[in-house]
């Protein structure tokens, strides 16, 4: 479905069209659920947040002004709700962007060492990423979003998104190197 069609669907939702709302849900729920689950790692809570997100869409569809893509607006709501739930569960005392630098001393060889057999290691390392990094990684590599869109979703400057992605990549390399050394 094109962006124009998504916008039209959202406009119908704003008028109280429940069929359009169901279509909108079917269009985005899988991607959104995946995104929420990647942050919470709890299917029950992810389902809750998904429900809350779409309820918010129903309430606020009329406020969508088309300044961003529909998906950016939608993922932004989901991100905010997920973060809110996470804060309530476990207050975040650490500023996610003030983390110690991981020295990027991994040789380029690591790049070439990732083979199909190492998919499990990659998955493991993805799970060990900090929440802020994982979100950016998920949006950039699963949703294929531009850094500008991601910045709107996670409500931070564009440069912060780029920096988070940079650090996420370094953390991944570091983690993979550690696992490969264990193996050898």
């Amino acid at each position: 479905m094109s962006e124009k069609e998504s916008v039209e669907l959202l406009q119908q939702v704003a008028k109280g069209d429940e069929k359009a709302f169901a279509d909108f849900f079917r269009l985005y729920e899988n991607r959104l659920y995946r995104f929420i689950l990647s942050k919470l790692n709890d299917s029950f809570e992810a389902s809750d947040i998904l429900n809350e997100t779409f309820l918010e869409v129903w309430r606020k569809a009329g406020t969508f002004e088309g300044r961003s893509k529909v998906s950016t607006w939608l993922f932004g709501i989901a991100y905010y709700k997920t973060m809110d739930r996470m804060r309530k569960k476990k207050p975040m005392l650490i500023d996610e962007d003030n983390f110690p630098e991981i020295v990027d001393e991994t040789p380029d060889a690591v790049s070439c060492m990732i083979s199909q057999d190492d998919a499990g290691h990659v998955r493991h390392c993805l799970e060990t990423l900090k929440e802020a990094h994982r979100s950016v990684m998920q949006l950039a590599f699963f949703e294929d979003m531009a850094y500008g869109e991601i910045a709107k979703i996670v409500d931070c400057p564009e440069n912060t998104v780029k920096t988070r992605m940079f650090h996420a990549k370094k953390a991944m390399k570091h983690c993979l190197q550690g696992r490969m050394e264990e193996r050898s």
Partner: peptide, 25 residues
Amino acid sequence: LHFLERMREEVKAQEVENSPGELGL
């Protein structure tokens, strides 16, 4: 570039349990 391409492939290939679907609706 190769490392990032592989990372992207892996993120996309991650198996996630089914979304709530029609039950969620």
